[in-house]
Amino acid sequence: MWTETVITEGPYRFESVLHRLTLDPLNQIDLEANTIRIPMYVHNHKQVVTIKGVGTIEAPEFEVTSDQYKEETLNEVARIFQWNVSLKEMAKHFEATNIAKLAKDHEGTPLVLDMNPYLSLLKCIIHQQLNMSFAFTLTKRLVQTYGEEVDGVWFYPLPEKVASLAYSELRDMQFSQRKAEYVIDTSRLLAEGQLSLDELVTMNDEEIQEKLMKIRGIGQWTIQNLLLFGFGRQNLFPKADIGIQNAIKKHFNLDQKPTYEQMDELSKGWSPYLSYASLYLWRSLETKQ
């Protein structure tokens, strides 16, 4: 067992991170201890990693604890929690935009990624066209039936496991027939090597979109959310997302949900950090922390 202290640039609101991650019932979070325990595969070894915030917003500091592969684990934790991204630079960028106050309210809030790209893709497919509560319920059922619990932390099943399932098994969990097909068929593409997430990571956004749009059950919303929360791309604006539309309507006091054309006009000046503008908009609808 090892523990390493990591110091990163402020501002960084770890408490805000934890509060947002409590939306997912599978996440193991202790708000009082300022701690999250996450599942991680390193060299095909399942290990639980504990991240504890011990610093302040302006001087962020973390204690990372696990059992093996220290260097690889620290690199992956830094990727997931975006410790190498300058949130100070983002704050400065948004000062002169029409969401300056919103950005100030959520200054230091990072775009935290899903624990791995497959987990992210699976969640995106399950969540599409469902309300958040039921989507999390379906995901929890899938993971707790076919995943594995290690020291109280749930590991998502690997593509090979999901690929082996029958559609009826997911139907029994209240997946629709189509969603069951999308989840299992996409997992089969990965398990059989017809689709590689490692390869996708090396592509630009347009190349990824072109490749994934050919897959049944994967559309624009799913791709954009994968790019955001799977790959950490910084300049994405998921205009089809209902939460984004509602947040813009609220922030700009619009009479009705904005059109895509209005959203394009209002978002001028947010680039190259559209992803962070999207995050701040989502946060504006959630419990403020």
Score class of each variant (00 low, 15 high):
153 V>I: 06
11 P>T: 13
54 V>T: 15
150 V>K: 13
230 G>Y: 13
132 M>S: 01
176 S>T: 15
230 G>E: 03
216 R>G: 00
28 Q>G: 00
73 T>V: 15
215 I>E: 06
168 S>K: 15
107 E>S: 13
150 V>A: 02
31 L>K: 07
144 Q>K: 05
159 P>E: 01
215 I>G: 03
183 V>I: 08
225 N>L: 11
126 I>V: 15
173 M>W: 13
163 A>N: 12
179 K>F: 05
51 I>D: 08
159 P>N: 05
62 F>A: 05
15 E>A: 11
129 Q>Y: 06
36 I>Q: 00
221 W>M: 08
62 F>S: 10
189 L>I: 05
144 Q>I: 01
128 Q>W: 07
172 D>M: 09
211 K>W: 00
44 N>D: 04
98 N>P: 05
178 R>Y: 11
70 K>S: 08
84 N>K: 07
250 K>I: 05
171 R>C: 09
239 K>P: 02
158 L>H: 02
98 N>F: 06
197 L>H: 11
92 K>P: 00
90 M>H: 06
201 V>W: 07
54 V>H: 02
81 F>M: 04
193 G>A: 05
264 D>E: 14
255 D>G: 14
174 Q>M: 02
277 A>M: 02
162 V>C: 02
74 L>M: 01
252 F>E: 09
19 H>I: 02
267 S>M: 00
226 L>I: 07
156 Y>A: 15
226 L>E: 02
48 V>D: 04
151 D>A: 07
164 S>N: 10
8 T>A: 11
110 P>E: 00
53 G>W: 03
230 G>C: 12
47 Q>C: 04
212 L>P: 12
151 D>Y: 04
58 E>A: 10
159 P>M: 05
43 H>M: 10
288 K>A: 14
76 E>H: 11
11 P>W: 07
6 V>L: 15
34 N>M: 09
217 G>P: 04
63 E>C: 10
68 Q>D: 09
206 E>D: 12
223 I>E: 05
88 K>A: 15
260 Y>F: 12
180 A>C: 12
178 R>K: 15
203 M>S: 08
28 Q>A: 06
234 Q>D: 14
161 K>Y: 01
102 L>K: 07
137 T>S: 07
221 W>S: 08
247 A>Y: 06
243 G>N: 00
205 D>Q: 12
1 M>P: 06
138 L>C: 05
189 L>R: 15
227 L>P: 02
119 L>N: 13
67 D>S: 11
148 E>K: 09
205 D>N: 14
28 Q>S: 10
206 E>P: 07
107 E>M: 01
255 D>P: 13
229 F>G: 09
259 T>E: 01
151 D>N: 11
252 F>A: 15
167 Y>S: 00
250 K>L: 11
235 N>T: 09
131 N>I: 04
203 M>V: 11
127 H>T: 09
142 L>I: 12
154 W>S: 11
250 K>T: 12
127 H>M: 14
17 V>D: 09
74 L>N: 01
263 M>C: 01
13 R>C: 09
207 E>V: 01
195 L>P: 04
28 Q>T: 02
182 Y>V: 13
44 N>G: 03
66 S>D: 14
88 K>F: 04
197 L>E: 13
101 K>I: 07
119 L>Y: 12
167 Y>E: 03
176 S>G: 11
124 C>F: 03
243 G>C: 00
242 I>M: 15
51 I>H: 10
248 I>M: 14
73 T>M: 06
165 L>F: 04
31 L>I: 13
